[in-house]
Nucleic acid binder design. Structure first.
Lengths: 342, 342
DNA sequence: CTGAAAGCGCTTACAG
DNA sequence: CTGAAAGCGCTTACAG
């Protein structure tokens, strides 16, 4: 498909391919005059070096992979935007690698992928980033990896940890301060660390306990949120506030509430998690906890690239505090919600 | 990072590397016994061939790229799922390449990317797939490309064209049959072919014309939909039906309508486009036009892979008919909407 | 059915 | 500051 190689450039510029290579790799050991000639020749011939050949010769593929298993398009989309941004500005390409969290052989699956594709590094996203066996394997393979998650796994040489527990704790306190006493939560899947963190923080925030009937487990999907909302709103003593562990489930609660004639935030305060687009698309706009996903993804990718270039072998894990975004779905508790026709 | 090479395998199996290569590439010209020995040796040594080396030697990178410029996470997410699915099952990796539709040098940008990365083929997504210069360049480079769009560009050796005009025509007719006469549309950006198609079809469906005041241009984003809705609902004779050219803008209309106390579908019928998750998340669930994005993406990727393998050089462009999904946001027109307090 | 040799297009110590 | 040679780990005609 292409004809121009480094040999053509060297020939035309009257230098050795070694010198062309040096110019390409921005080696300081090239005379200014020589460099100029080479660059002009490259331009004139329309030469672009083959990454395939560079890869084989240098041992670097200039490919990094994003390992994911999350059906939430908002979250994945934001993360991908940050990652690809950082990649592009450093001459790397981004390979997308979907995996299955539930696959017991997930670590082997990823190892095989790495051996085959020869990516130079991996960014592992939640919930896959919660599995310690993965960074363990990758480190043994000698391939740098970074993780984004809600908890810190020492196996990763670099991680960005979103302080989900702290944020949900603050949310719980906020609801308490608004006078809510009958507070419910729709949790994420119990085997996800993120779900555990969000629950633990929220419980701390509201003072440590919640009746069983007010705790429902969802799967971060819309339908599960709707089912949980139906159950909660059918209780004799329905909650005056519901925290759903992500925006999608919170949107489901909003929908069910509306169908049942329960006004938000008049009769029911509602909060979500993620700060995704959907939070502002529904009515009323959702109070939610914003994760700065684009920034986190970009930052962690920059660090990975530093590790690949050998600038450093690891980074202290960093914790990111999240912010509570006040929408219009949370208000003061009413004295007795039963008076209001529920 | 890895030590085992094809030489090690050949040595251990007592054959030449040529034979190992043949086994790897599933050549039929290998004795059953030999093949078995080689495969066992590969297994025992934990060997996986380097794609980098295969790429250089074979002229194929086993990489394909997805070229995109669409901030709509739902659309991109669905397309990516279909593409990556097809890639994985054929041993290809997917590289994500974001571009800027508005960049006048977009074709050069993509050409440079291809020369550098050596991807074996590209899948170009809307709206980028509406630019004829791109397939033109790629074909000249000798790199196969496929497009997904709302119109057929002959420059592409293969395209999947969603019949957006036909679908919006049907929607227009449907509104007409329900008795609507004051029908408005929030269009997409006028320089997008998809926006033109959706508008043209809809106009055909409602009988060919629409007062200027009932036509608003949006940018497919939420805020532009909200602004258009405000304007439309403030008219002396507000429309009894609004078609927004995508679900996100339709969601914005729903929100504004609710804020203004305009009931949907009681006082206002509302339809969107895309059939994305958000359509079912808002209340009432949106009537929308579903694009089978995952299936389309997967199908077009399969065809691209066929072209790469040399099975065929091009495909007749295929048109995909879309389906109208009946939500709860469209109903019969009322006799006189002004009676209802607007 | 199987092998020895050349080559894909670069980079990398090693010299000069 | 610059060059000749070897090598990265495969595949590919060409023979046998």
């Amino acid at each position: 498909m292409l004809s121009v190689t480094i040999d053509d450039v060297a020939l035309a510029a009257g230098v050795s391919i070694r010198t062309v290579s040096r110019v390409l790799n921005e080696s300081p050991h090239v005379g200014a005059e020589t460099r100029k000639t080479v660059l002009e020749t490259i331009e004139r011939l329309g030469y672009s070096p083959s990454t395939r050949a560079r890869a084989l010769a240098s041992g670097r593929s200039f490919l990094i992979a994003m390992v994911q298993d999350d059906p939430n398009a908002h979250v994945i989309g934001a993360l991908q935007r940050g990652i690809v941004e950082a990649c592009s500005s450093h001459g790397y390409e981004l390979v997308v690698r979907p995996v299955h969290f539930a696959n017991p052989d997930i670590a082997s699956d990823i190892e095989n992928f790495v051996r085959r594709s020869r990516v130079d590094g991996l960014i592992v996203l939640p919930p896959t980033s919660e599995i310690a066996a993965i960074p363990e394997r990758l480190t043994r393979l000698g391939v740098p990896s970074v993780g984004i998650a809600s908890v810190s796994l020492p196996e990763y040489p670099c991680m960005l940890v979103s302080n989900e527990r702290g944020a949900t704790r603050a949310l719980g306190q906020h609801l308490l301060e608004l006078g809510h006493r009958r507070i419910a939560m729709i949790e994420g899947p119990a085997h996800f660390r993120s779900a555990q963190e969000r629950k633990a923080g929220f419980l701390e925030g509201i003072g440590g306990s919640m009746p069983e009937a007010y705790r429902r487990e969802g799967d971060y999907g819309f339908d599960s949120g709707a089912a949980a909302a139906e159950a909660l709103l059918s209780l004799d003593q329905p909650p005056t506030a519901i925290f759903a562990a992500n925006d999608i489930m919170a949107a489901a609660v909003a929908k069910i509430a509306r169908e049942r004639g329960v006004s938000v935030p008049g009769q029911l305060s509602l909060a979500g998690f993620d700060g995704s687009d959907i939070a502002s698309m529904i009515t009323p706009a959702l109070t939610t906890i914003r994760r700065p996903l684009v920034d986190m993804a970009q930052a962690v990718t920059e660090r990975l690239l530093d590790m690949i270039s050998g600038a450093r072998a690891s980074w202290p894990h960093e914790r990111i505090d999240l912010t509570l975004v006040h929408g219009k779905s949370v208000g003061p508790a009413m004295d007795d919600p039963r008076k209001n026709g529920r």
